[in-house]
């Protein structure tokens, strides 16, 4: 019962949303791109989409500058 977040093994929590996971991981950056098993999750869906067991999650912080 685990998931992989940015290469780290993390416990899977039943009924946890993307928003909940970001909080639990203390990812406080406001601007992130989240992919679950290579599928992009739109920001407006963070509070609705549940994190599936055994999934692979990438959280990428976007930092201003260019």
């Amino acid at each position: 019962m685990s998931i992989e977040v940015n290469g780290k093994n993390v416990d899977w929590v039943q009924n946890e949303t993307v928003e909940g996971l970001l909080k639990r991981m203390r990812y406080t950056f406001p601007l992130v791109v989240v992919k679950i098993n290579d599928k992009v999750i739109q920001k407006q869906d963070f509070s609705k989409v549940l994190v599936p067991n055994n999934s692979n999650i990438a959280v990428i912080h976007m930092i201003s500058g260019g």
Partner: peptide, 18 residues
């Protein structure tokens, strides 16, 4: 993607990937 602020970067990446 060669934009400047983080918000536009995020939106752009989400749109292209989806």
């Amino acid at each position: 993607e060669a934009l400047d602020n983080a918000e536009t970067k995020t939106t752009f990446i989400e749109e292209i990937l989806s």
